[in-house]
Amino acid sequence: MLYTALQVTISTMRLLHVIHSMSPETGGPAESLRQRASEHIRTGDTVEVLSQDRPDAPFLKTLDFPVHAISTEIGGYGRSPELLQWLRQNVGRFDGVVVEGLWQYFNIAVRKAAAGRVPYAVFSHGMLDPWFKKQYPLKHLKKSAYWLPFQYPVLRDATSVLFTTDIERQLATESFWPHRWQGVVVPFGIAPAPDETPSQLERFFAAVPGVRGRRFVLFLARLHEKKGCDLLVEAYARVAGQYPEVDLVMAGPDADELQKQLEGMARKYKIENRIHWPGMLQGEAKWGAFHACEAFVLPSHQENFGVAVAEALACSKPVLISDKVNIWDGIKADGAGLVDTDTADGAERILRSWLEMDGEQRRAMSRRAQACYERRFSMSRCAEAIRQVFAR
């Protein structure tokens, strides 16, 4: 099912979102929930979040909505009788529950607690993409054993399973069997980017002083195998000699300790002084990075949406992405970026194509990037679509 236009007049709703962690280091699901929750609140909805973070986690203090943090876990998959008890006692206060992601115990807990009482929907966040099946066959076998008795019933019994693109919805049926559920594509989005300020730029240049006054392209995501980080380093090495004035910033958390391997690649190609590794950028430093860069690059192997892609577009920055970022078709149609395969050759082609453009061509693509964001990735449409799911 594709979400199109609202056909039901919806009063304000009380929504509960359940997620494993709201930590910014976990990537897109936490950031997208933060932005969606803020939009729901802006339009009059009541939003609460249930997570398995530590109650004293500092990032929880930065959120503008209540988070009930229950960190007690037993064994794998985040099993928590305390979390199930909280849900049974509180789920009746809400008009709907949104499960954020798969493969964790909170999925089972929501199904048990909400059954016959409150409708729930499941955001898959790309976790059913067959790329994981191909890349990690042993993990897939383990998940296959978990699928039929635990994960599949959660999806089957949900009011809706939410996907961000039709590509993601179609791919989700290729990983496991059975796969009968009520799939709904909702228009995903982000909040508008803040206007550029001097303090943003100074925060960024304080984190990455080596690019002050230089041209650079920006990678801003987790340093993870699926993001195509190694492809980007190799591709940049192929063009760096021809464009000595252009650097590469690789910004993101390194939970999988991939950075050392990537730095080794940079030394091998003799470009170690041209690639900058500031770690995770947040707040003003993050927005300073977007505003200061020439373009954003993400040659990912799998991306159901890509929050940072939309954030770059919102900052009028063209995006250089692979065709495995599932919003690539709209971006290409709008002329807001460059798209190629998730290979080193593909990454090289998009970098080289960008660098070969003259100034007017780059400025024109920047204008189209902003228009693409406004046309396709407004957060208000996403929030309304989720409310519509529970109004049916």
Rank of each mutant, 00 (worst) to 15 (best):
H179T: 00
H179S: 08
P187V: 07
A221D: 04
A172Y: 02
L223R: 00
A172E: 01
V186G: 06
E174W: 09
Q200F: 11
S199F: 10
H179A: 09
A207I: 05
A193N: 07
L218H: 05
D195A: 14
R203E: 06
R212Y: 08
V186I: 15
L218M: 09
W181R: 05
F176C: 01
E196C: 11
R222N: 02
R203L: 00
R214G: 04
F204N: 05
R180C: 04
V208K: 05
Q200T: 03
A221G: 04
T173V: 09
S175Y: 09
D195T: 10
F176W: 05
G213N: 08
V186N: 12
Q182G: 01
G213H: 06
A221W: 05
P194S: 13
P178L: 08
L171S: 03
Q182A: 07
V208C: 13
T197W: 13
P209W: 13
E174R: 15
F188T: 07
V208E: 08
A221C: 09
E225Y: 14
V185S: 03
S199H: 14
V211T: 05
P178W: 12
A206N: 12
R215A: 07
P194A: 14
H179I: 01
P178M: 10
R212Q: 14
R180V: 05
P192N: 08
R222C: 01
Q182N: 14
F205E: 01
P194K: 15
F188A: 15
L201F: 03
R214A: 11
F219G: 02
L201V: 09
V186T: 15
S175N: 05
R215P: 01
P178G: 07
L218T: 03
R203G: 00
D195K: 05
E196A: 12
A172Q: 02
A221Q: 08
H179W: 02
P192S: 07
A221H: 13
R212N: 07
R222F: 02
R215F: 00
P198W: 11
T173D: 04
D195W: 03
P194R: 15
K226N: 06
R215C: 02
V186C: 15
T173H: 12
G213P: 10
V184A: 07
Q182C: 04
F216M: 11
G189Q: 08
P187R: 10
V208L: 11
P198T: 12
T173L: 08
I190D: 05
A172R: 04
A172F: 02
G210H: 11
T197H: 11
L201R: 14
W177R: 14
E196F: 08
T173W: 02
K226S: 04
V208P: 00
H224S: 13
P187M: 09
I190N: 14
A191K: 10
L220S: 09
F205P: 01
P198H: 13
Q200D: 03
G210S: 13
W181Y: 14
G189H: 06
W177P: 00
F176D: 02
R222I: 01
I190K: 12
A193M: 06
S175H: 07
G189D: 15
S199P: 00
